Computed example of a mutant assay.
Amino acid sequence: MLHSPHPVRQARPLPHAQRGFTIVELSVAVAIAGVLLVSAIALVQVVLRQSRANDVVSGIPRLMAQIDKIYARANNFVGLTTDVAVGFGAFDSVFDILGAPPNRIANNRFGYATNVDVATAFTGAASNTGYAVTFAGIPSSSCADIVTSAAATGIRGILVQPEGTVGTRAITTAGIGTMTLAAIQAVAPGGAAASGTTGGGAVVKGNLANGNLDIAAMTDPRACGTGSSTVTIGLVNWK
């Protein structure tokens, strides 16, 4: 029998493949996943907020135009309420209509009330010649976009007021009842402290002779520049 002159080498066992992950690797993976999740949630929130703001903006022209059209041959807005406006179709599909007549309400896409109120003393005692549509619960981050878009549609007056409680409108029916045209027009450029005769809101349109948006007033802390998380936006038209 022949033998090889070279010694036979025994095969070395292959090292076992590493199984699983170390604690450090798992910690890094969890941290990365957490960052990605937080970023995704934040992005979704931004997209949702922008979408809802766009819905609010898209509903404004029809809402105001329909009210003006229905009352075009009247000398005032006597009898106008949120429920009445719902009844003649002022609120389109971007609003959620809840309840039954005569107490229907219209929620904006942020989930808070949109109210229609008559400015009873707008051009004199019991004149009822103006009205305001108020949007409650508008995020401060969406305020400027909504205000500038509304101003471009021809809305004659715009008020903004920070909310003390999210979704509780700061421009109330009682405040609108004391609102006067003279007070709105007398507000100095750049804004003045909100008063009862402006519905409690800072005037950002309606005070400049050319009807332009008062940018300085809009960015004031009493308006869109507030530190509050939400604001009430009031849109005002009059005879």
Rank of each mutant, 00 (worst) to 15 (best):
M1S: 15
H3Y: 11
R12I: 09
H16M: 10
A17Q: 10
R19N: 11
G20V: 08
T22H: 11
I23N: 08
I23Q: 12
L26V: 12
A29L: 14
V35P: 00
V35Y: 02
A40D: 02
A40G: 04
I41E: 02
L43Q: 08
V44F: 07
Q45G: 03
Q45C: 03
V47P: 03
R52E: 10
A53E: 06
A53G: 10
A53D: 04
N54R: 14
I60R: 06
R62I: 11
Q66Y: 10
I67D: 08
K69R: 15
I70F: 14
Y71C: 06
R73F: 13
N76H: 12
V78H: 12
G79S: 15
L80I: 13
G87D: 14
F91W: 01
D92H: 05
S93A: 10
D96Y: 04
I97F: 03
G99D: 07
P102H: 02
R104K: 05
I105F: 01
N107E: 01
G111N: 02
G111S: 02
Y112A: 00
N115C: 02
N115A: 10
D117E: 11
D117G: 03
D117N: 13
A119F: 07
A119I: 09
F122D: 01
F122M: 03
T123C: 02
A125G: 00
A125I: 03
T129Y: 03
T129V: 03
A132Y: 05
V133N: 03
V133C: 02
T134D: 03
A136S: 08
D145S: 14
I146K: 07
I146T: 05
V147W: 14
A150H: 12
A151I: 11
A152C: 15
G154M: 14
R156M: 10
G167E: 02
I171F: 05
T173Y: 09
I176S: 04
T180Y: 01
T180R: 01
A183F: 01
A183G: 00
A186V: 01
V187G: 00
A188I: 08
G191K: 06
A193G: 09
S195D: 03
T197L: 03
G199K: 05
G199S: 06
G199C: 04
G200Y: 13
G201Y: 08
V203I: 05
V203A: 00
V204H: 13
K205H: 10
G206N: 06
L208T: 12
G211I: 15
G211C: 14
N212I: 13
N212S: 15
A217F: 11
T219F: 15
D220V: 06
R222D: 10
R222K: 08
A223P: 12
C224I: 07
T226Y: 06
S228D: 11
S229Q: 10
S229C: 01
T230F: 01
I233Q: 02
G234R: 04
L235R: 04
V236W: 07
N237K: 10
W238V: 01
